[in-house]
Write a protein that binds this DNA or RNA. Structure first.
Lengths: 220, 220
DNA sequence: TTATACCACGAACACCTGTTCGGTGTCAAG
DNA sequence: CTTGACACCGAACAGGTGTTCGTGGTATAA
């Protein structure tokens, strides 16, 4: 069920108040800022927000409110950091280094920390730094960092790192299954033409989850 | 001056309570958990904590407490989190929305949390979501989020958002000063040719610090 | 000893705060 | 029309909450 305009304003006010003051507002503070004269109406709408799962309420406790939306979590739940191992470099002419798969051995090299806001499911993620211009058709430049998830297969349209057996080359493309064993590899740049290959000649090495490009300094 | 054992316990309780419940404790809640029967004693010690700069108090407000010490920052900030306001969208045909500059008004929209690892200096940063394909020559796609820093000028080679007065258009390019008033705008994609303009016809709106692209779902 | 901070206690006060209840108006289904 | 669900209002109540005041103990310096 959708929220009324009032409920929306109440929710926004709570999050803003929480961020500014560091504590939840009282019922009357909400009412006066949202334009509700009666505390019972605020209470009424708060119960609806609670029923919809947007906030949690604690009974008979002053300021017993709590925003449970994902936006609030990124602030409060500062534990919401995800550590991703930076496994190495990726270039067109080499297969990508894959993570060791026992899941226990800790990666002792560099780690990349990202918030859960950006990577929803941190399972099986690893990061690679791109060398060279070969993936420029995927809008990925030298120096970019790609965060990938281990995968052997892909849904239609997912951006994947694909090893081309016949060319001995890694490429980043969107993968679509066509009729038979034909696979269409679609560059991310919409001005470029797709590329077709036989399913037996390609090997999906992982899905691309995130691309991060830092521009403080020029790529070498 | 050092803190007494009681003050130390009070401070620890406040931070723990705040973390667990998402709101500051009342004076009586502090008293009962720290073992102080009188509210005035708690009040007395809270004033000392405030004088020492460890907390902030708001007068005559229930739960008017706020942990402010560097230890509180360690929750969000020493982990290296930086909050960046997501100001809106950027498209080729519109000037970018710039941050209000009074430094006091808080942004009440969405925030983007990043680690300091990625953005070294969080001063004056803001984020925009790119609409449309017009910046594909800068290797930036529809849906990408660019993190920018407010700036009127740029060093040679820095990636900037440039407003082209004669074309009424925003573009992202590397900026180089040439002889006279000539400015060279170099697309990021090395296969593309640079573009020249008169310095009086362009306006630098900010430097691009970071580009983030999420690929979980297809860009619309 | 006296004086002076410092720290603590309990009680009382005035206001704040969540809750509840009776009542009003609107709108769609019966 | 009647009914019921929904959204809202104002008022009142009981308990929560910050503040203040008078009091007393303990240590250190005069």
């Amino acid at each position: 069920m959708g929220l009324s305009d009032r409920q929306h304003r109440i929710y926004e006010f709570i999050t803003k108040f929480m961020r500014d003051k560091g504590r939840p507002p009282t019922i009357r503070e909400i009412g006066s800022h949202v334009g509700i004269s009666s505390t019972s109406v605020v209470n009424y709408n708060l119960n609806i927000l609670a029923r919809e799962g947007l906030i949690q309420r604690e009974k008979e406790v002053s300021r017993g409110l709590r925003v449970v939306g994902h936006q609030a979590k990124s602030l409060a739940e500062s534990v919401g950091l995800v550590q991703i191992p930076l496994l190495g470099k990726i270039a067109a002419g080499t297969p990508i280094p894959l993570p060791t798969f026992d899941g226990l051995t800790k990666h002792d090299g560099e780690m990349l920390a990202l918030t859960r806001e950006l990577v929803t499911d941190p399972e099986g993620l690893f990061a690679l730094e791109v060398r060279g211009d070969s993936m420029i058709d995927a809008l990925i430049n030298h120096g970019d960092v790609v965060v990938m998830k281990r995968a052997q297969s892909a849904q239609n349209g997912e951006m994947c790192a694909v090893w081309l057996r016949d060319k001995n080359e890694t490429t980043l493309k969107r993968v679509y299954r066509e009729k038979g064993n034909r696979i269409r590899l679609q560059p991310m740049n919409p001005t470029m033409k797709p590329f077709y290959a036989d399913a037996r000649n390609i090997e999906i090495q992982g899905k691309v989850i995130l691309v991060v490009r830092q521009l403080q300094k020029l790529p070498a």
